[in-house]
Design a protein around this nucleic acid. Structure first.
Length: 179
DNA sequence: CCCTGATTCGC
DNA sequence: GCGAATCAGG
């Protein structure tokens, strides 16, 4: 059994060197290696003394996530229904009556099966803290994605799944108190 | 707000 | 040696 928790084995260091020289960011490498943070990667990179490669400040920020905000002054009407590009929102109100999401309550009726287009889904690399973590697909395949829907108003809420596996990684909010 | 690498320092 | 916390920048 391969134990990922074995931090820097020769293989992992080798892979780290490769990916780093390939220009991948620390966070990307961390995700590739698994079970490790970007801090660990950066720390190791420095310890290995292989920092400062090709400095490319551009094209290093993946932003495939589209706003998908179609601000319609009128009421939210399903309008056209295209099987491929349909952006359905549903699965609402399984809760009795205590869900604070008034703005989403008037969305179209729930569907039996929620379908998120692949183009809307996100990989683990693209997954943000504010995104829906609902798993989609087989985790053992490269096609595995997460719902990735952005919650409105910074709320841990998904219009597609109503309830999501939301778990803040950590509070980055640190009050700056001058000493 | 999103991301990036750099550095510090307790473990 | 390791990496979380923090810092500094785009």
């Amino acid at each position: 059994m391969t134990d990922p928790s074995q931090s820097w084995s020769d293989e992992r260091v080798e892979l780290l060197r490769k990916l780093w020289s390939d220009g991948l960011s620390a966070s990307q490498i961390a995700a590739e290696l698994g079970g490790i943070t970007r801090n660990a990667v950066i720390g190791k990179v420095h310890r290995l003394g292989l920092s400062g490669r090709a400095k490319s400040t551009a094209s290093a920020a993946p932003r495939p996530r589209k706003p998908t905000r179609q601000p319609g002054p009128a009421a939210a009407a399903p309008a056209a229904v295209m099987p491929g590009a349909m952006r359905t929102s549903a699965a609402l109100a399984p809760q009795p009556a205590a869900e604070p999401a008034p703005m989403l309550m008037r969305l179209p009726q729930p569907r039996e099966e929620v379908v998120i287009p692949m183009s809307e889904r996100v990989t683990i690399m693209e997954l943000r803290e504010s995104m829906c973590r609902w798993p989609m697909g087989d985790p053992t395949t490269p096609e595995f994605r997460f719902c990735g829907a952005r919650s409105e108003l910074g709320m841990p809420y998904c219009a597609h799944h109503s309830r999501i596996a939301y778990q803040p990684v950590a509070d980055r909010r640190r009050d700056r108190k001058r000493a």
